[in-house]
Design a protein around this nucleic acid. Structure first.
Lengths: 216, 216, 216, 216
DNA sequence: AATGAATGAGGATTCATTCAT
DNA sequence: TATGAATGAATCCTCATTCAT
């Protein structure tokens, strides 16, 4: 419906190439969302809150994201990719492949990303409140489990008949260790992390081969 | 749904001693809440929903509970007590005390309560969405850890210098095993539960004495 | 969620018996809705608009009405009852029952209510935009058709085998005559009303008996 | 649905003479609108929906149509012309001109167009929701009435002093007959259509001359 | 103690339209 | 001419909580 009182022409703003602005705004939205989640929790992530902090009209958010969940998901995806990348890199650099080094390296890679990305700690470890995020998390854990298992089997460290569920359990347990270690402290409790590594390692020993360790 | 036709004056109800009514109503509220949580999830636990199912006016709920979180908390406490009781009973019946039997008995005691109390599964394992519940959960896990550790040390099975944090970690890990095992299946995934018991046991071996097992 | 800054205690208002206030507010809501519909059309009937005009918070509207459609429906029901009552009364007063007098009396009864209730003109004749209202309208027309037909058959004026659809058609046609007659003019175009009466009468002659007219 | 991943630069499209594209696109917009209205009702006719179905950017719609109402209007006009054409053709073919044949032929011409153009049924008969359409409808009915009356007077079938309003009433009544006949059934209720023809004819007899029928 | 009634605050999402390019 | 992007204004409705009685 046309309004009788026409909108005032908006104060002209500095022109910026559209393509760029768009990308920049998506970033702004994600950053704002990230901050909100870290500072006030997942439930505080409302369209309005994002809009205010990102200084982007609520309606505009819907230009970039299908709905609210999509924001959270994008946030998680962004961090998750970095996470996976870190794990891959760190594993690739290993000079001695063994159950111990693989578990330790993987888990420490996670820790380093958690340090870099506090929002990830909040969303991933503290606030897996949102169904979309939770599902994504589960799936990601499953994917990770599958990849690491394959890697370990290929390296002759894990028995080929290791049940998938065991690998998933290991990953999930690692996840919970992190949840606990980062519960109170954004830096992560060192003792718990160490224990967690030991814990996961000792569990996985059940599915290990006799191979002690190999040089890639 | 609000009605257009003004409400009829309420049919006078049989008087019941207040004290009794009160207790009964609290139970009704908790039962209703429990059903809602199980059937529709924690988010569906609205005062209105409780009011309708429990047939207690919304405003009256506030006679018994300070706020909505308090309901959830009460729910958890109710189930939690049962849980602790079960653990105590089952541990008390043990004929051979050893690391293995303590861990297995404790974890199976949990499983049996989860079977009896599906609402507990929902709240505790699936929907730890609510800050109050989450905090309560943490504290309960800490309490449980302390108790079991004390028990194990007294029995000469755990080293006296076992760090509290290790015990808590063990409990938390068990918790996550259950989260995973009950994720899809209200009966709990048997394989995961078995693995979980092994996992916790193998971890705790680090803090075990040389004692193999004792008869209480 | 509890707010940190508690609401200021509202300025105390003149106490009014609750029961009364409630009824009064429902009336206020209906009156406001009526005005909105008359002055700005059915589409302008938004919860916000009603709230503002009735000086009742939006949320409170939902105490009395299940949803927006319910308001419109209540409006229609209110007027509709009056309409039916008028028709019954006027038909009851007839001294000579004949096809002509029945049709003319019924239609004039409608006109008199339209005069009294301009909102009805708007909703009923102009804005049958809303699905709920439209359906209600259809059903009401069917009911009216059935009643009048039964009446006419009982009086020996209409043939017993008159198809229901013919009666409904007659009523609907009358309805459209009114739509047209009141289109521009809230008083109704006299010529069109007269013609409409003739039109309906001449159509119904097809189903008339030979009886000329009877005294009740 | 907005995508998180930035839009790919668009694949360059084959150039087409502007004039042609323009006409073609207007058609596409109208066809899409037509389908939307038929399948989902007038309310579902949003710029976005049209844009998606017509594969024309939302903003571009505004190149061809001043606003949303204009689309609906154009739709109606398009169908309306076909309608008028059909009436003219069918009347022109009449071998015996009489009140009966004129009314019947005209109304049946309408029916045949309704059969061909279901969108017309939806917009015209069911969804006269939109003010613009409603007004257009009224005006068209008036024009039609004038034309048919002139035709009938010229043929010596209608009295020269027949009031315009009577002719309009007849057309409007016919319109309502169709509304009713097509309410539930896209094919139209045969009984109602027959009755409607009889109804309109019997009404117009009031303004007929003594001439029985003539051969053009 | 009990409760019907009241409500402020906020929720997500959609829409028609207008720019800047 | 064409359009991606932007947005102000609205939409309906729900919720937890508080009061006046």
């Amino acid at each position: 419906m046309a309004s009788v009182t026409p909108n005032e022409p908006p104060v002209p703003k500095r022109r910026v190439p559209t393509q760029l602005r768009s990308r920049e705004r998506v970033e702004r939205i994600l950053d704002a969302s990230s901050r909100i989640v870290v500072e006030r929790g997942v439930d505080a992530l409302t369209t309005r809150a994002v809009s205010e902090l990102a200084k982007v009209p609520v309606a505009s958010i819907y230009q970039y994201f299908a709905d609210k969940d999509a924001i959270l998901l994008a946030l998680v995806e962004r961090d998750t990719e970095e996470m996976d990348e870190q794990v891959r890199t760190d594993l690739g650099r290993l000079e001695l492949l063994s159950l111990e080094t693989i578990v330790a390296t993987t888990m420490r890679a996670y820790v380093s990303v958690y340090h870099r990305r506090p929002s990830f700690v909040e969303i991933w470890l503290r606030g897996r409140t949102n169904a979309a995020v939770r599902d994504y998390g589960r799936r990601h854990n499953e994917r990770t489990a599958a990849e690491v298992l394959e890697f370990a089997v290929a390296a002759g460290l894990a028995r080929p008949d290791t049940p998938m569920a065991a690998a998933v359990l290991a990953v999930e347990i690692g996840d919970r260790v992190f949840q606990l270690a980062f519960e109170k402290d954004l830096r992560g409790d060192e003792f718990l992390i160490e224990e967690g590594i030991a814990l996961v390692t000792s569990y996985l020993r059940r599915y290990a081969t006799d191979t002690d360790g190999i040089r890639p």
